[in-house]
Structure formats: structure tokens, C-alpha cells
């Protein structure tokens, strides 16, 4: 049963301690229904990647009638934070939670280890090379290891640009932080 779920096309390294900790923190929450609701909120620039997958969604607290959602920005100047906050409020309002507040925290500072395995897989599906601590990224299109840095910055603060020397595709690489 488990083997059916493994995607054999691209092997993404499994649980790192930081994500494992996030996962168990979520599992212990008293409000699993709220976490599930927010699994419908996506990063505005990374289709199919939820705020949870990206590691931006940190905590959900409920105080009487008010829902407090705590998020952390990927990069300090990330312009998507305002839109993410608005999307969180819209999603919860739609499920009849009327009193919703979003708080942006800085600590613990976001890092790429907070991204879920599903999130890394989704990055690869979008042809964005997932973060890779040790080495230059593999080409997300043809999987060649023969890639070269083109620019340390790409379309957003969280990405760099690489070129594949084999298939010649220029691709985004989600920087390790």
C-alpha cells in the first residue's frame, strides 16, 4: 500500500528534522480542521504549493471566537506576504470563521528545510529545482547533473537562475537557505 504512493520518477530526500518537527507540531494541534482548511491556500506565485508545504504557515491558535494564524515570510522583503495574509483570511471567512487575524513572525527564521517533501515534489513538477544543500541543482526537465549558475537571483528573491548544459533549458532554482 505504501509503495503505491512513492513517486519513482524523481526521488526527493525524505524527512529532515525541521520538517519532522513541523509535522508533529501540526499533528498535535487541537484544530486539525483549520489546518486542513488552510491546505487550500496556495503561494500566489508557486501554483499548487500550499502555505503549509512552503513552510510559511507556522501556527493556528483559537482564542474564544478569534482565529489567529501565524505565518513567517520566506525572505524579509517578500512582497507576497500581504497577499498570503489576505488569502488566509478569505479562505477562513468562506468557511464561516468571521474573526480572523494573521500575524507575521520573524522567529524562528524561515529556512528551506521547512518545505514539505510534497512541496519539494511540487517545485520539481513546476520545473523549479528544489533546494539542494550540497551541490548544484539537477536539471528539473531532463535531470542532468551538468548545470551551471547563470545568476544568483531569478524571478523572485527565493530563486536563482541556472542553465542546463545538456538540454539547454534555463530554469529556476529554489535557493537553499
Amino acid at each position: 500500500m505504501v509503495s503505491e504512493m512513492i513517486n519513482t520518477e524523481l526521488v526527493i530526500p525524505t524527512l529532515n528534522p525541521i520538517f519532522a518537527q513541523r509535522n508533529s507540531f501540526r499533528a498535535m494541534s487541537d484544530y486539525p480542521e483549520l489546518w486542513e482548511l488552510l491546505d487550500s491556500v496556495y503561494d500566489p506565485e508557486l501554483p499548487g504549493l500550499t502555505l503549509w508545504d512552503l513552510g510559511v504557515l507556522q501556527d493556528i491558535q483559537v482564542d474564544e471566537q478569534q482565529v489567529l494564524v501565524i505565518i513567517t515570510p520566506t525572505y524579509s522583503g517578500c512582497p507576497a506576504v500581504d497577499m498570503m495574509s489576505q488569502d488566509v483570511i478569505t479562505a477562513l471567512n468562506a468557511a464561516n470563521y468571521d474573526d480572523v487575524r494573521v500575524k507575521v513572525t520573524l522567529a524562528p527564521a524561515w529556512c528551506t528545510d521547512m518545505i514539505s517533501p510534497a512541496g519539494k515534489q511540487q517545485l520539481a513538477n513546476l520545473h523549479i529545482a528544489p533546494p539542494n544543500k550540497d551541490d548544484d541543482p539537477d536539471c528539473p526537465v531532463c535531470h542532468s547533473k551538468n548545470t551551471q549558475l547563470l545568476s544568483q537571483f531569478g524571478s523572485t528573491a527565493c530563486k536563482a537562475l541556472y542553465t542546463c548544459q545538456d538540454c539547454l533549458e534555463t530554469f529556476d532554482y529554489f535557493k537553499t537557505l
Binding site: 524579509s76 522583503g77 537571483f153 528573491a157
Partner: peptide, 11 residues
């Protein structure tokens, strides 16, 4: 790249 570094600093 320069615009992105500017963004880091405005953050």
C-alpha cells in the same frame, strides 16, 4: 539581481 538585493534591504 540588484533589484532583488534592494528588496532584501527594503524588507
Amino acid at each position: 539581481a540588484l533589484a532583488n538585493i534592494a528588496l532584501d534591504y527594503i524588507g
